[in-house]
Amino acid sequence: MLIEEAFSVDAPRAEVVRFLLDVPRMGACVPGVEDLHRVDDARYEATLVVRVGPIQARFRGDVSIDATGAPDTIVASASGRDSTTGSVAQVRFFADLVESEDGSTEIRSASDVTIRGRLGQFGSGVVASTAREMVKTFAQCAGQEIGGVAPSASRSSNTQGIAPVVARGVLSWLREIWSRIFRRRGQVRSRDE
């Protein structure tokens, strides 16, 4: 499913790029992210906890950023598996950044969300609504973060003071991979149904 959300932040584009490439800082704005830590220059691992009523899914997996299109476009990709329901969530977050004359930046985002396994069968309406809410929450938080308001303590539970990912060489390699639809090289072992 595709979830589109556009929002503006009171900051120049360069700052927005810096924010989006700072995985820990950006990850702090994603509701439910836990235990975000760096694996190597190109990859981070994290757990995303999503709760819908009595249903709880803990998606453990990888996050990586492709900055080769910066400052026009940033792409973040994540994929994780939940062992309880045997489901896999794949997200690709595309952010097109458009700077305005007044120094603010509009972020036009599109999140391509695919849930496979049992959760994928569970009321697609609920899954879509939940995903949409998460994107909205992220947008709101990102807007506050970048706009200069210091993050409140409750949001920084997963910051470990790690330097942002800037290795462009590695990222261009990533771009090659991401440009082919749905191809992944066995990074995540997926539980089967």
Partner: peptide, 8 residues
Amino acid sequence: LVDYDELA
């Protein structure tokens, strides 16, 4: 546990 390589 099955390891897959996704295809288009």
